[in-house]
Design a protein around this nucleic acid. Structure first.
Length: 368
DNA sequence: AAGAATTCCAACCGCTATATA
DNA sequence: CTATATAGCGGTTGGAATTCT
């Protein structure tokens, strides 16, 4: 009876299913401020009705700043295939060789694409020209992780272009070519894929002391290239936009599930987000030994953008009113509905246009 | 246009490993 | 050493998105 492992949480007390933007925001804000020393305690402290495990998963797989989104490049796929040959289904090990990729994502790609790909290869052997070209022999790093890393880096660069086109769809398009303006059913192209970058805080920058993240992608997060790697909200997944918005638009549910109104700390957290992030940049730069000459400029831009963005976000989420009602925190009404410069008319501008250190590059779900 | 079938992936589940008392 | 708590990992699945008929 008392034996065995206790459940990680009381399942009847926790919320399950897709994460809403509000929850994400909350989790991000909390982790930025407090780190994640204790996942089990985190949801409670953060005011989330989720189990710690769920929070951890959400953070590691999607919210971490260094998570890379977007399609896998050929190089990455090759690397996965090779690594899988040697490591088997050790997804986290494989992920550790692919900067910015999570074990879950790799696992999914393996199960959905690569297995088939290999099966096809085995069957039709050399039928796939471009497939066999680079994959096998040439770059057969056969295990040198560093080699894989560097090819991964190249892959990142290559992917930049790709992401410019794919990056803003909620879901990875099945057909990638000619998709730029043909919107999938029910999902317009300005269906935002939040790509905010509360500034590439590397995970080491704010969870350095307690980071238990195993994915070694940190190695790569210092890349100055703004948009490429992941970012908070660089979601591609179905954000369950409808659900999310429904959720935040239902006051009674919010009250029941996420007691925003009663959480002053959360709003303070939001307000302090930008400054915190700004310092995060500096910290990161110092840590990474990068030039910090952008530091001040970053901070200013980031702060402004961040504030704008947060206002916008709150507004979009329908949290603004709530907040104002309850906390009277609105500092500048004029900003309350401002869309960040890089996010106008519901269409995110090119991430590259945003300075790597800024936070403004953050695209959101549509206001329905 | 509508329904069925298929694909894909985010999130969950349960187990193991590790840390701590 | 044992018991318990927590983190992390890998397998599985529910259901939304997309394609097919």
């Amino acid at each position: 009876m008392g034996k065995g492992r206790a459940p990680c949480c009381d399942k009847s007390q926790v919320k399950r299913g897709p994460w809403s933007p509000a929850e994400d925001l909350r989790l991000i804000a909390f982790i930025q401020k407090h780190g994640h020393e204790n996942w089990r305690a985190l949801p409670k402290q953060a005011g989330l009705l989720r189990c710690g495990k769920s929070c951890r998963l959400r953070w590691i797989n999607y919210l971490r700043p260094d998570v890379k989104r977007g399609n896998f490049s050929e190089e990455e796929e090759d690397a996965i295939i090779k690594l899988h040959q040697t490591l088997g289904n050790k997804w986290s090990k494989i992920a550790s060789h692919l900067p910015g990729r999570t074990d879950n994502e790799i696992k999914n790609v393996w199960n959905t694409h690569l297995k088939k790909k290999l099966a096809c290869k085995d069957d039709g052997e050399h039928s796939e020209g471009d497939e066999s070209k680079g994959s096998s022999s040439t770059s057969s790093t056969s295990s040198s992780s560093s080699t894989i890393m560097s090819s991964g880096k190249r892959a990142l660069e290559m992917e930049l272009d790709e992401q410019k086109y794919q990056g803003f769809s909620t879901k990875k398009p099945r057909i990638l070519e000619n998709e730029e303006d043909s919107s999938p059913r029910g999902v317009s192209n300005n269906q935002f894929k939040p790509a905010m970058k509360p500034n590439e805080l590397s995970s080491s920058s704010f969870s350095s002391n307690n980071s238990s993240i195993t994915n070694s992608s940190q190695a790569d997060v210092s890349e100055p290239d703004g948009e490429k790697t992941g970012s908070f909200f660089n979601f591609r997944g179905r954000y369950s936009v409808r659900n999310s918005l429904e959720e935040v638009n239902k006051p009674e549910e919010i009250v029941a599930e996420i007691p925003f109104e009663s959480d002053y700390d959360f709003w303070n957290m939001l307000d302090s987000l930008s400054s915190f992030q700004s310092s995060g940049i500096q910290l990161q730069n110092v840590e990474a030994g990068q030039s910090s000459r952008f530091g001040d400029a970053y901070n200013n831009i980031a702060e402004v953008e961040n504030n704008k963005w947060l206002r916008y976000l709150e507004n979009e989420l329908g949290l603004d009113a709530t907040k104002d009602e309850n906390h009277n925190l609105s500092k500048n009404a004029a900003e309350s509905t401002i869309v960040p410069e890089n996010f106008q008319h519901g269409i995110p501008l090119k991430p590259a246009e945003v300075h790597p250190g800024t936070v403004g590059n953050f695209h959101l779900w549509p206001s329905l």
